[in-house]
């Protein structure tokens, strides 16, 4: 464990807490893409298949359970909680996200570390996570205005993978046989997808104005 990875995990956890706070405090999920949340639930379930077979550390197991439980809880809330589901922007959240699932799985069948079920699902989860934010970014472009909590949620979600890139650089420099090309390349793509959002987020923060995304 290094400081970059810890910062990344904490930022990731923070993004989920901010989203839970928004949904719980405002009893609303307006501006949140349910499709992105469903993709994250798939990412965590597919990535943590080794939850009961490989024990790395208490921290690792605890965080895996938190990520799986929180992502499923958010999807459940957005689908079945009577008040929350009413505020879902159904007509704006129209990204055909099942294409992302299919493409990621197809890529995982071609590019993986080992041709085993667990490794293929791991690679699948890495590729899917890189593109999972797309429905959310499309929804924001369509709705134009971003409320504070949603903006913070997306900012932390993007920042966590940026910390992971520093972690991979650090591990590459300090650990002789460390290579994680799949995660690394995918992580760079993932962070790059947030680039324009980061740009507008920074501008709005600098001008202390409300975050507006160009339609």
């Amino acid at each position: 464990m290094n400081i970059f990875r810890l910062a990344g995990d904490m930022t990731h956890l923070l993004s989920i807490l901010v989203l839970l706070l928004k949904i719980y405090a405002t009893k609303s999920c307006s501006g949140i893409s349910r499709k992105t949340q469903e993709l994250y639930a798939i990412v965590f379930v597919a990535r943590y298949l080794d939850l009961f077979t490989d024990f790395i550390s208490v921290y690792n197991t605890f965080m895996k359970v938190v990520f799986i439980a929180s992502s499923l809880a958010i999807v459940w809330c957005m689908r079945f909680h009577p008040m929350v589901r009413r505020s879902y922007d159904r007509e704006l959240d129209t990204f055909r996200h099942y294409f992302l699932v299919g493409a990621s799985f197809a890529l995982a069948l071609i590019l993986h570390e080992k041709f085993t079920v667990q490794e293929i699902f791991w690679a699948f989860s890495i590729y899917l996570e890189a593109v999972a934010i797309l429905p959310q970014l499309v929804l924001l472009q369509r709705s134009g205005n971003v409320d504070n909590l949603t903006g913070q949620y997306i900012f932390f979600l993007g920042a966590y993978r940026a910390f992971y890139i520093l972690n991979w650089i650090y591990r590459y420099l300090t650990e002789p046989h460390f290579t994680r090309w799949i995660a690394c390349v995918s992580g760079v793509v993932q962070t790059a997808l947030y680039a324009d959002f980061f740009y507008y987020y920074f501008i709005s923060w600098k001008n202390n104005s409300k975050l507006k995304l160009p339609a």
């Binding site: 990731h12 080794d50 490989d54 895996k64 992971y164 995660a183």
Partner: peptide
């Protein structure tokens, strides 16, 4: 042996 390190990252 180039044992693929188990995935110790989240």
């Amino acid at each position: 042996a180039d044992v693929v390190a188990e995935h110790d990252e989240l």
